[in-house]
């Protein structure tokens, strides 16, 4: 390989009949053209805002000026702000409510619907269909379900003479209400990922397990689950990243209330930066969220990678 590359370029045309072979893997500047469009958008829409955000978070800035350099001032103010700390806790609570639920229900649905019947195909489509709805529609639907006195839930409870739990206004239930709507909305993707993973498992392993006297539970525990471990990690990471960014459902269902108990970090950022016009502090909160998501995803990845290595 190296010898070929070392061939002087001038020798190529002169050689006439004996043309030197071309190394198709050699770097060529033309290749850059193919990635340039992506690089352009990656730089302008991702890299620049990322570093601009970091820069902003160290400045006292509003919409009219980028003001003075304040060092870690914005961050110090942030960590003294009870509402921010509350929103961090709210976000973690929400992630804790939704991610395991999505992973487990997604897995359960995939296990149930991983068969070649018409009913299974219809149900797969049905469960996935909620994913294509916009957040506005989803929250509208769930507001209709949860709304006190006239909502679907109240009506059903009413038939039995009971009072429905106040999922929107009860401080201890509001976040659970948002989580329910979110799980309903997002369940399609985990289910589809698990389904595709299940279909990758070779059928003959199951046949071998049947000959090995494995019952349903033993087959699930010893064959199916270990075979889709990687997909499980993927689903959890994707959902952590997604659910940390909760905004639309909280904004449209509860406006962060009651008493900031359902205000997630993104809503706090929105309030701070675009309603109170404190761009510097909003940027600082964004950086905190960025680091939190990064850490959560990394931790999940490292833990499962180590486990896989030991097994």
């Amino acid at each position: 390989m190296d010898d070929r590359r070392a061939t002087p370029r001038t020798a190529l045309p002169a050689a006439g009949a004996r043309t030197a072979s071309v190394d198709i893997y050699a770097p060529q500047w033309r290749n850059f053209i193919f990635v340039a469009p992506f690089l352009f958008f990656f730089t302008t829409l991702l890299l620049v805002p990322l570093f601009w955000g970091m820069w902003l978070s160290f400045h006292k800035a509003d919409t009219f000026s980028s003001g003075n350099f304040v060092g870690f001032g914005n961050y110090i103010r942030l960590f003294h702000d009870k509402v921010f700390l509350q929103s961090v806790w709210n976000t973690f609570y929400f992630v804790l409510l939704t991610v395991p639920t999505l992973a487990l229900i997604g897995l359960f649905l995939a296990l149930c619907l991983n068969r070649r019947t018409r009913t299974a195909a219809v149900l797969r489509t049905l469960f996935f269909s909620s994913s294509v709805l916009s957040v506005t529609i989803v929250t509208l639907i769930w507001r209709i379900v949860f709304i006190p006195n006239v909502g679907l839930l109240s009506t059903i409870y009413g038939w039995f003479g009971a009072t429905a739990p106040a999922f929107i206004s009860d401080p201890s239930l509001a976040m659970i209400g948002i989580a329910i709507a979110t799980v309903w909305w997002c369940i399609g993707l985990p289910m589809m990922l698990f389904l595709s993973a299940l279909q990758q498992i070779p059928q003959d392993i199951y046949e071998a397990a049947a000959l090995d006297n494995a019952n349903r539970w033993q087959t699930l525990r010893s064959i199916t689950l270990p075979s889709i471990k990687r997909t499980f990690v993927l689903v959890v990471i994707v959902q952590i990243v997604l659910q940390f960014q909760l905004f639309g459902q909280a904004w449209l269902m509860t406006r962060g209330g009651p008493n900031n108990l359902t205000k997630p970090i993104v809503l706090y950022i929105y309030d701070t930066a675009f309603r109170r016009w404190d761009l510097g502090m909003g940027a600082a909160a964004s950086e905190v969220l960025f680091v939190l998501i990064l850490m959560a995803a990394m931790a999940q990845y490292l833990v499962t990678r180590n486990k896989a290595g030991q097994a």
Partner: peptide, 12 residues
């Protein structure tokens, strides 16, 4: 039974 593809459990 011994399968053509052996059908060993890959994670065990």
């Amino acid at each position: 039974m011994v399968f053509q593809s052996y059908a060993l459990y890959p994670h065990m």
